[in-house]
Design a protein around this nucleic acid. Sequence first.
DNA 1: GAATCTATTGACCATTAGGTCAGATTGTTA
DNA 2: TAACAATCTGACCTAATGGTCAATAGATTC
Lengths: 211, 211
Amino acid sequence: MAENKKQGKQSNIRAKSQEKILDAAQQEFILQGFKGATVQSIADRAGLPKANILYYFKNKENLYHAVLEQTLNMWDEGIGDIVIEDGPKIAIEKFIAAKVKMSFTYPSASKMHAMEVIQGAPHLKEFARTYLRQWVREKAKLFQHWVDNGEMKDIDPVSLIILIFSSTQHYADFEAQILTIMNRAEYEPEDIEQVTQFLTDIILRGCGLKK
Amino acid sequence: MAENKKQGKQSNIRAKSQEKILDAAQQEFILQGFKGATVQSIADRAGLPKANILYYFKNKENLYHAVLEQTLNMWDEGIGDIVIEDGPKIAIEKFIAAKVKMSFTYPSASKMHAMEVIQGAPHLKEFARTYLRQWVREKAKLFQHWVDNGEMKDIDPVSLIILIFSSTQHYADFEAQILTIMNRAEYEPEDIEQVTQFLTDIILRGCGLKK
DNA sequence: GAATCTATTGACCATTAGGTCAGATTGTTA
DNA sequence: TAACAATCTGACCTAATGGTCAATAGATTC
């Protein structure tokens, strides 16, 4: 609130410009890679002169980091949360539903992240790595608890989480390939429901949580 | 044979150099992307002068296509084949085993392919696209046959194939992330067996082919 | 062993891309 | 409305990169 007092039209302009730039940059980085995306191409896509981009972000490296950070925050928010009270069935359902929705709603975030990881995650700080590891361990502990409690089959929780990651993200990252296979031009809203249904069905049964 | 007659030491040199270049190029293209990989960096990695690279491959674009083609051929060979006599259980087992083995044995091929697809497959010719579609349709028809025959649950075959693609390739493409999660430096030979076992178990049960 | 391919490589060039900067323009505030 | 700050932008510079070329060395063939 106190901050908003200070924000006049200018801060608004700043925020608007930055957002426009970040969006354009994300597209270019995905399409061309870090080196392949030129400041000029980002500028063109954002409809701004090149020097303006460099005015808001000191340099290309800086801009890339900003895009990546935005992406990771989005991933973090969209992943949903599961708690011990859920039990394995609800937990898996929630988890899959959240990740599929993410994949179809913000495919660019997933693609950006995927490219970074494939290239060996050169820009992901140690912090991000440790955070992910902690996250997975924490959730794995929940599943292990349910396994020990006889609420689900004896399945390796970490492998299960990786399976859910991979099968859901794939629809974002490999969009081009899936559309090719299906001989379609783009996804339809119904696809979210269909994919969620399919994956939930197979994986729940795979975990012995459905006959 | 007749061809071999003509191959003396020179053809050997040619083959050896080209292979060395292709390997170096593949690494660089994965690490830096198409634009980011410089001919000089590829030359350095291959231990050859830059001009020598351009002697064997007219230009960078050309070299990229050569690497991509080699990659696709490898994918094609390593995917294994399933036939109607197999029945759904054996087919899924064979399919998963082949793809997991591929992912752990030639992760670079998978990564190269993944980057290309994420970026919208700009270099993949219409031919490669059509080929993939045909391949999937053909295999899907087998699964559909088994479904109609009551040999397995009523599951969408195309979604099943996509699930196997995604869950197996993930171990190659997201190697860096999985190692991070597991807090390990690199994969071990046993991992192939463990992953194959896990995925086969879940997916077979998911398809109602295992109690 | 001369003639003819094939392979190798340093020097060179044109283009492009990241980044700077100074000056113009617009917004803010008192 | 004057002074100040934030935004915008064309012109410019430098380094790096893809690609060419001509000259040299090595193989092959007859």
